[in-house]
Computed example of a mutant assay.
Amino acid sequence: MGASPSREEAHSNSSFSGNGKAMAVASSASSSGSNQAQSKRAPALHMFQEIVAEKDFTASSLEDQIYTGIFLAGKTKKYWVDERTRNNCFMLFPRGLSITWSEDPRFWTWKPLKEGSSDADTDTQIEVPSLQNVCWLEIHGKLERSYLTPGVTYEVLFEVMLIDPAYGWSVPVNLQLKFPDGTVQQRKENLEEKIRMKWLELKVGEVKTQQGQKGEIEISMFEYDGGLWKRGLLIKGIKILPKQ
């Protein structure tokens, strides 16, 4: 779960204009078959223009990247579309998150990491922070709610890895979603007995957006009440994916 989907299906039902707009392919069928052609036509990509407004794609490069992933905001965010469902998917990378003390090497150090498993991603690197020692753990990320495909239930997950020496995790961390109207989802996760040296997905919560809902969702991981110094946590980012 979480890897950008492979491009297995043909793109015969839709094409893209040079300015980035998703356009339905005009049917050349006779009027008697027009209804059937319409039913097979792929739906337009939700909020595509708004999401990639900073990018300048040609039709061919856009069609090549939409299912493998488009990096945004200086490679601090990745956006792709599930080819089967046409639902939007997102990954928020650490350089786009707010991490307390992250620029002080006494507390966090940064290292390069190759992103993705597809051939298109082999030369793409992100930076991930490695926790050296903190007693105040606090990480926040944000995503515009309207970018999520309406009517689809999404899971929000922190992707992390515990590396030895790892200590200070006997007090559970807090995982929280805060919505624009002030409502909050929160749960706790105990990392003490989690497997080491393997990427873990920590579920924060779920969100289902209706058409027209706007505002930023804040996604958080924090623990600062237990008083324990903590070490040995790599942060790869936050995934926002349709629930399987």
Rank of each mutant, 00 (worst) to 15 (best):
V128E: 05
F71P: 00
F107T: 09
T209Q: 03
S15C: 12
M23Y: 09
L228S: 10
P105L: 06
R145H: 05
H46N: 06
N174S: 13
E50N: 12
E159W: 10
Q125D: 09
A29D: 09
A44L: 14
D119A: 07
K40F: 08
E138W: 05
F158G: 02
Q244E: 15
E9D: 08
F93R: 00
C89R: 02
D64M: 12
G18N: 13
N19F: 01
I51K: 08
D181H: 10
S15T: 09
S30G: 13
K188N: 14
G2I: 06
S12N: 12
E223L: 02
E206Y: 09
M23Q: 14
W169I: 08
R86E: 02
L175S: 02
L148T: 02
F16N: 00
I235R: 04
T124M: 06
E8C: 09
S15N: 11
K194I: 09
S60T: 15
D121E: 11
K114V: 14
G205D: 03
Q185R: 03
L233G: 02
S15G: 11
G96K: 08
K230G: 06
Y67E: 06
I66A: 03
K214T: 15
D121L: 09
G33E: 15
H11W: 11
E127F: 12
S32E: 15
L175K: 01
A73F: 13
Q244G: 08
G205V: 03
S102L: 06
I217Q: 02
A29L: 10
A22C: 04
A10L: 12
A59E: 13
E159I: 15
G168D: 08
K178Q: 15
W110G: 02
G215V: 11
E144A: 06
E192C: 11
K194F: 12
I51T: 03
G232T: 08
T58I: 05
S31L: 14
W80A: 05
V204K: 01
K203M: 13
R84W: 04
I240T: 03
N133L: 08
T76C: 05
L97R: 03
V152S: 02
E192A: 14
Q211F: 11
N133D: 13
G227Y: 11
Y67A: 09
R231I: 04
R41D: 11
P180C: 11
Q36L: 14
S118D: 10
D104A: 10
I240E: 00
Q186Y: 06
F57C: 10
E155G: 08
L234G: 03
E144C: 04
G205R: 00
F57D: 01
S31E: 15
T76E: 04
K230E: 12
N88H: 04
A10N: 07
G227N: 13
